[in-house]
Design a protein around this nucleic acid. Structure first.
Lengths: 137, 137
DNA sequence: TCCTTGCCTGTGTGCGGCACCCAGGTTCTA
DNA sequence: TAGAACCTGGGTGCCGCACACAGGCAAGGA
């Protein structure tokens, strides 16, 4: 049986993360009757490692909850897992696109600003560099 | 003088965002003594539009606070603005890289899973699809 | 035996940038 | 004069933790 620290080392996650997972119900420890410490069995270790893996694949903690509840009810989570990851891939692609466009705008701005002087405050504009940038959308 | 809704339309941001900016001190309204309504002058409108622009360039609200405080003290924010955007560009590049790597892992996993059957719960593994993925790092 | 060190506990707050909801007061429109 | 549409403050929720506080408990050395 492992304590929070023990589990955190065995599963290579922080102790704070372990406590967080317990709080939201992802991990369910037993308690040491002597002192109230959280105690984790092998099943919990397996779960903690699973969480690490799944997070590394872009699953949210909510997704992982869902997966666990399938497994707990004796049903295969695999079809859900396939569906979820397709969803997350789509979101991630959209996110990367968006960030990429932002990055481009930032780089364009910085480039354009190279040939512009710093402005002095004149009560009319706040920062002419930023105000020189065309509005997105 | 504009109310929350008026300002939100003139600056093309949501009323909730306007209230949020007031709460964190980015916009400072006067008050209608009759009813306590927030009232925004032209200066506030200019600021609200500036916020929209700056956010579109990747500046955080904190960054914008900083920029305003320069302007309010009669100093040019431009050097800071150049420094901040370089910082944000670096962060964004790192973020895009990270997300890109995640996306790749997700796509690889989905691809690999195409030739794998759904598992049935056996009390030993939670989801063999996820557990078949090598641990990142 | 006492002291230190290093675990552990619960609870609460903070991060970013809002979105949404509630209950109630006010103002505009038909 | 009624109802719609606005306004107010205050609170909560999102995501995934990180950090802090105050205190309890365990194991070691001097």
């Amino acid at each position: 049986m492992l304590t929070v620290n023990g589990l955190s080392k065995a599963a290579r996650i922080t102790p704070d993360a372990v406590r967080h997972y317990v709080r939201i119900g992802l991990l369910v420890p037993s308690r040491d009757p002597k002192n109230g410490y959280r105690l984790f069995d092998d099943e919990a270790l397996k779960r903690a490692r699973f969480i690490r893996r799944a997070k590394g694949l872009g699953f949210t903690l909510q997704d992982i909850q869902t997966i666990f509840s399938y497994a707990d009810n004796g049903r295969s989570p695999c079809p859900e897992v396939r569906a979820i990851i397709q969803q997350r891939i789509a979101e991630n692609r959209a996110g990367v696109m968006e960030q990429g466009e932002l990055l481009e705008r930032m780089e364009d701005a910085l480039e354009r600003w190279k040939s512009m002087p710093d402005g002095e405050p004149d009560g009319d504009e706040i920062c002419h560099l930023i105000e020189s940038v065309p509005l997105a959308r």
